[in-house]
Computed example of a mutant assay.
Amino acid sequence: MRATGFLAPTPDRGLSRQKSIWSVLHLDPVLLMLLLLLVGGGLFVLYSGADRDFGMIKAQGIRMGVALVVMLVFAQLDPSIYRRWAPWLYLVGLVALVAVLLVGVGAKGAQRWLALPGLPRFQPSELMKLVVPIMAAWFLSRHFIPPRLTHVAVALAIVLIPMALIIKQPDLGTALLVGTAGLFVVFFAGISWKLITAFLAMVSVAAPMMWFFVMRDYQKQRVLTLLDPQSDPLGAGWNIIQSKTAIGSGGWSGKGWLQGTQSHLEFLPESHTDFIVAVLAEEFGFVGMLALLGLYLLILFRCMYIAVNAQDSFGRLVAGALTMTFFIYIFVNIGMVSGLLPVVGVPLPLISYGGTSSVTLMAAFGVLMSIHTHRRMITA
């Protein structure tokens, strides 16, 4: 009897299906498209913020190209590699931070860089923005979730030691970003609200001590300027006053690209770096700011989707912490430019001029893509 079509064997389409180019490259097309859109828009705004300096745009384009390559490389590595190498990377980072304090290269009153023979000058603190959350996730994922009090204490030590070394450089802005990234790992691990309340109480008690024994004079001046910028309008308060003037003058739709007066007449300082969002608000107005915040929000949603769908606790903790670190970049920069937070030198992510922070952020997105694309099929 001839076999019917119902009984005839058919090839397994799932096994014969070819992998897409995105699967081969271990890239998430949605996140990649959003990042490219943000980088392209950032170069567009930077051209105005840099007062039409094409050389600066070219240099930033090269840096962004390098950052994208770094993202691609980090995306190729299996998350198990990050887990396995976390303790060693953390140890190397601590040694590098100590070396910065001993033999680091100084500039503008801060000692933050290392200059090793045969290597370009770099900031070890930027490396710790990635290493600290990965190390904290490595430790906590090895134990039961939610963690016990002793495990929380060890995780906090993992976070606070490099944070203290970075504060000594001094670099309070980077220290806060590193500490926040690690603390988000501890928070996502599921600690109780009692511990969170106790930690916030400890921070509140320690804040006055930090003011008298940790913070430098210029850092204190930033806080005082935030509270009353008009006390020194031609000195310490100049940046915030001019930034708020630029933002307010943009109105609903802005003055138009390249038509901003605060930046092009040199009233607004650092218009191509920390205060570039003021340039965007002046030239594109409220509509432009909504577009920027909407794009950032889509990136954050996609990253949180990746974090929620990670297959193990290590991946979820790392992805969640890196996502929230990106949010803190956005929140702190826009907050300080609009006069809601002290000026701490945090750039607007992937828009402000500069290469170090862009490479670090793209490396973080590469880790997120690695977590998302290296998921293993679970069989019954």
Score class of each variant (00 low, 15 high):
T4D: 14
G5W: 05
A8K: 14
R17N: 02
Q18I: 05
M33G: 12
L37H: 05
L37W: 02
G40A: 14
G42Q: 06
L46D: 05
D51G: 01
A59H: 03
R63N: 13
L68H: 10
F74G: 00
L77M: 13
S80G: 12
L89Q: 02
V100T: 15
W113R: 12
Q123V: 12
M128L: 15
L130P: 09
V132D: 03
I134V: 15
A137I: 09
S141E: 06
S141Q: 04
P146G: 03
T150E: 09
V154Q: 06
M163Q: 10
L165I: 08
D171C: 10
T174Q: 03
T174Y: 02
G182A: 11
V186S: 07
S192M: 05
A201K: 00
M202H: 00
S204V: 13
M210C: 15
W211D: 13
F212A: 02
F213C: 07
K220Q: 14
G235F: 04
K244W: 07
K244P: 02
A246T: 05
A246N: 11
F267T: 08
F267N: 07
P269V: 01
S271A: 15
A281Q: 00
L292C: 05
I299E: 06
C303S: 13
A310P: 06
S313H: 13
M324L: 13
T325Q: 14
M336Q: 04
S338N: 03
P349V: 07
G354D: 01
S358N: 08
G366D: 01
V367C: 07
V367D: 07
T373N: 14
H374P: 01
R375M: 13
A380V: 12
